[in-house]
Design a protein around this nucleic acid. Sequence first.
RNA 1: GGGGCAUUAGCUCAGUCGGUUAGAGCAGCGGACUCAUAAUCCGUCGGUCGCGGGUUCAAGUCCCGCAUGCCCUACCA
Length: 527
Amino acid sequence: MANPSSFYLTTPIFYVNDAPHIGHAYTEVAADVLARWHRQAGDDAWFLTGTDEHGQKILRTATANGVAPKEWADRLVESAWKPLLDTIDISNDDFIRTTDARHEEGVAKFLQKLHDDGHVYAGEFEALYCVGCEEFKPKSEIVDGTGEFAGEKVCAIHSKPLELLQEKNYFFKMSAFQDRLLALYEERPDFVQPASARNEVIAFVQQGLEDLSISRTSFDWGIPIPWDSSHVTYVWFDALLNYVTAIGYGQDDAEFARRWPANHLVGKDILRFHAVIWPAMLMAAGLEVPNHVFAHGWLLVGGEKMSKSKLTGIAPNEITDTFGSDAFRYYFMRAISFGHDGSFSWEDLSARYQAELANGFGNLASRVLAMNAKYFEGRVPETHDERPADAAIRELAARAAATADERISAFAIHEAIAAVWELVDALNGYITEQEPWALAKDPEQRDRLSTVLATATEGLRALAVLLSPVIPRATAKLWTALGAEAALGALADQPIRDAGSWGLLPAGTEQGQLAALFPRIETDTEK
RNA sequence: GGGGCAUUAGCUCAGUCGGUUAGAGCAGCGGACUCAUAAUCCGUCGGUCGCGGGUUCAAGUCCCGCAUGCCCUACCA
C-alpha cells in the first residue's frame, strides 16, 4: 500500500511526432495545478509526464529525415516537448521517455511476468494490410471502395483494395478480466471520472472484451519481446507501462511502494486504454489498479474540435507571447468545466483576462498596496477592533480555502478557482464600502483605517497562496511585494490548507513596489 | 448499426433528491465613487429551459419518441 498521503499524478505521454498545441498544454496545466495544490497541501505529491517514442510512424518519419529513430526522438523532445513544458511553467517531478533504459527494462520484466504467469499466448493476428502503406490498417483508415473497387474494403490513403494477411502475434488474455473490471467499476464508482466517461467504459466492457495483440513483427522500432526478439512490443502496451517504470517498477521496490497507485489524467479519446486495458494489465501482473482515471474534455474552437487540418490548431506560445503563461493557465482552468468539452475563443480569453485578471485580481493588489504605501509608509497595518464587515471577509477566506481544497480533491478545478474568486470579488466590494480613502482624511478614524487595510492585506496574502498553483508567476510577484517572502518564507512552501487562517502576515512587515500583475493589453489582440 | 454526452439569457456556462418567482459571469443600459491597471461598487434590461408526448399535486430535472451537434465503437491531448 502506498502512503495514505501519496498523490502520484500522471499525464499521457506525448507522442513525439505530434506538433504541440493547446490541447497538450491543457492537459499539462490541469495536472500541474493539481500537483502544485497537493504539494502545498502537504501531500507526498509526484507529478510525471514524458514522451512516447516507439512505433512505425516515428520510424518512418525519422527515416524520411535521414536519421536514426532515437536521434529523431531526441531532437523532438529537446526542440518541441521540453520547451512546451517551460512555456506554461509545468512543475513536473520527472520526465520519462519510452526509450529510457529504466523503461525498456521495466517493460521487459512486466512482459516476462505476464508470460510466466500464463497471461500471454502466441496466436494469429489477422488484419487488412495495405501494400502501399506497407502496414496493417486500423479500422479508422479503412473505407468502403467505390467504382471498380465497390464492395471491397480499401485504404483511406491509397484507395486500393486491402489484403487480408496473417501475422504471428503474442496476445494478452484481456478477455479473462472482463468480470473483474466490471466489478471494479461497480465497487469504485469514482474509479473512472467523470460519470459520463464511466458510463461509456462500462457499456464498452459489457459488450465483451477481446484479447489484445501485444506484439508486432513488421518493424523493429520498439521494445523487443523478452522471450522472442523477432517481435517488438505493441506501442500502447509499451506506453502505458511508463506509469510504473518511472517510479521504479522492478528496480526500486521502496520507491514503487511509496508512489503507486497513480491518478491518471487523460483526454477522453484515450480513456479506453487507461480505464480498460491498463487496469487489466495491472491485475494480470498482480499490481493494484490506479486510484482514479479522470478523462477531461476537448477544447473546441468555433464549435469544432481543433485540428491541424482544419487550421484551428493553436500553438501555446501564440497565447503566452501576448497574455503570458499565467493567463493561459488561468483561462483554461477557469473557463472550462473540467471533464467537459469547452470552447476556446480569442475574444473570451481577452475578455476574461481584462475583467478577471487585470481588473479583478491585479487591480485589487494594486489598490491595497498603494494605500498601504500612502497611509502606512509601506508597512502592513495593525488590526484593531473587528467589525462585522471585517469578520465576513475573514470567514469568507476560511470558507473559500476549505471549499477549494475539497473541490480540488474531486478534480473540479474550475469550481475550486471559482470558490477562491469569491474572495477577490468580496475584497473589491469591501474596500469600496469601507472607503479607506475617506477614513484617511479623518485622524479620529486612524485605527479603523488600519483595520480595513490590514484586513484587505491579509486577504491578498490568502489569495496569493490559494492562487499560486494556478498563476504561480503573478502570485510570486505579489508575495514579494507583500513582504511575505521575508516574513513567512517562500510562497511555494506555504501550507495551502492553512491559507484561510487569519493574521499570518505580521503588522509592520515592510512591503515593496508592485508592478501591474496583469497589465492591460491593447486592443489588437483579436485574431 | 450499437453506445455516451450535449441542447437553459446576445455570448460562455451553473442548476444537487422533482418543490416557491430558473441563476452567475461577460456584453448592454443607468447611477455612485476616486485608493487603484479609465479601475471598483450599486441598480437594471434580458429566458417558449431544442421539439412533441407521458408520469405527477408539482418537470429545466423522471420516462418515451424526434431533431441537431460532438465523441466512442480496439494505436491523435
